[in-house]
C-alpha cells in the first residue's frame, strides 16, 4: 500500500485474530497487485497498454470506475482518475516545478472526456493515458479488510491503512475506539482524537507529498482543467458510514479548495475536520483531546 498500515483486533481466541490477519494481508496484496500505479503487471498497466481499443472490465473494477465517474460529475470535473500524468508532474519526488510545456503535454493525455466507459467496456482514447485509482482504492481496501475480519468472526477492531480507517466494530464492551487524526507537518502527532464506534474515517492532505520550491508549497493535488495545483486546506478529515465515502468526501473537498470545499463539507452533512496551513482547525467532528 506504500504507507504504514495497522490492524487492531479483539477476538475470542488468538487463532481467530491470526486467521483474520492473514486474510487481510492476502486481500491487501491482491488489491495492490491489481490496482498499483507502479507495477507493470497490474490491471491498471494493462488498461494503459490497451489505449485506443476496447477492454472488458471485471465487476469490481467496473464498480470502482462507476464510482470514479460519479465523483467526476459531482466535483464538476475536478476529480479525474485519468489525470495521473498531471499528478506525477507535481510530485514532491521531482524536486522542481514542471515546465509549462510539460503541463501542456500532460494535459493532452489526461481528461475523463477521453475515456469511453460503457460498462463493462472501457477505452482510453489517447495512447499514453493512464488511470490512477489511488484516490479511491486505499479507502476501498480498508472497507474490504474490515468486511473480511467480520466474515472471519472478529467483531471488534480497526483497519488502518495509512490513516484511512475502517471500523470492524466497536470494542467488545460496546465502547467506541479512540482514533487520532494526523497533524499536518508534524510527524507522529495527532491533531485531534475522536471516538469512532463504526464506519470509516479518511484524511486527504498534501502534507506528505507537497512539492516545496523556494520556500513555497505546491500541493500534489492538481486541478485537471488548468494543470496547476489547487490552493486548498492542509488536510481534510471526514467521518462516514464507510471509509470509501469518507475518503471521497475528503478528496473532493480538498480539490474544491478552501472556499467551495468548506461549503461542500457543510452541505454533505458528514462530520468533518479541516486543518489550514496556519494550523487553525475548523469543523464539527467532536474532539475529545
Amino acid at each position: 500500500m506504500g504507507c504504514p498500515c495497522a490492524l487492531h483486533l479483539e477476538a475470542d481466541a488468538t487463532s481467530i485474530a491470526q486467521a483474520a490477519h492473514a486474510a487481510v494481508v492476502v486481500e491487501c496484496m491482491r488489491l495492490e497487485r491489481k490496482y498499483s500505479h507502479y507495477r507493470d503487471d497490474s490491471l491498471v498497466a494493462r488498461i494503459a497498454a490497451s489505449a485506443g481499443s476496447d477492454i472488458e472490465i471485471d465487476d469490481e473494477t467496473a464498480d470502482l470506475l462507476d464510482f470514479a465517474a460519479a465523483l467526476h460529475a459531482q466535483s464538476g470535473g475536478l476529480f479525474d482518475i485519468s489525470a495521473g500524468a498531471l499528478t506525477r508532474l507535481w510530485d514532491a519526488q521531482n524536486g522542481r516545478l514542471p515546465d509549462p510545456s510539460e503541463i501542456t503535454l500532460a494535459l493532452a493525455v489526461s481528461g475523463w472526456r477521453r475515456v469511453q466507459w460503457r460498462r463493462p467496456r472501457l477505452r482510453l482514447d489517447v495512447p499514453g493515458m493512464r488511470l490512477d485509482l489511488g484516490g479511491i482504492v486505499k479507502e476501498y481496501a480498508a472497507d474490504r479488510c474490515a468486511k473480511i475480519c467480520r466474515d472471519a468472526g472478529v467483531t471488534a477492531g480497526v483497519v488502518d491503512l495509512g490513516g484511512d480507517l475502517a471500523l470492524i466494530g466497536p470494542h467488545r464492551d460496546g465502547s467506541a475506539w479512540v482514533v487520532g487524526i494526523k497533524a499536518p507537518h508534524v510527524s507522529g502527532h495527532a491533531a485531534a482524537r475522536i471516538e469512532l464506534p463504526r464506519g470509516g474515517l479518511a484524511t486527504s492532505g498534501d502534507y506528505e507529498r507537497a512539492l516545496i520550491v523556494d520556500g513555497r508549497r505546491y500541493s500534489h493535488i492538481v486541478d485537471p482543467g488548468s494543470g496547476e495545483p489547487v490552493q486548498s486546506f492542509a488536510s481534510v478529515s471526514v467521518v462516514a458510514e464507510s471509509c470509501l465515502v469518507a475518503g471521497a468526501a475528503a478528496t473532493l473537498a480538498m480539490l474544491m479548495g478552501r472556499q467551495r470545499g468548506g461549503a461542500y463539507l457543510r452541505e454533505l452533512g458528514l462530520p468533518h475536520l479541516v486543518i489550514r496551513d496556519d494550523g487553525s482547525i475548523d469543523g464539527d467532528i467532536v474532539r475529545i483531546a
Partner: peptide, 22 residues
Amino acid sequence: PSPSLSLLLAASAALTGHAPAR
C-alpha cells in the same frame, strides 16, 4: 441526506456492497 451525500452514497453502494460497514 443532502443531495451531495445521496449522490456519494448511491455511487458507493456497489462497492460498499462488496464491503459493507453495515
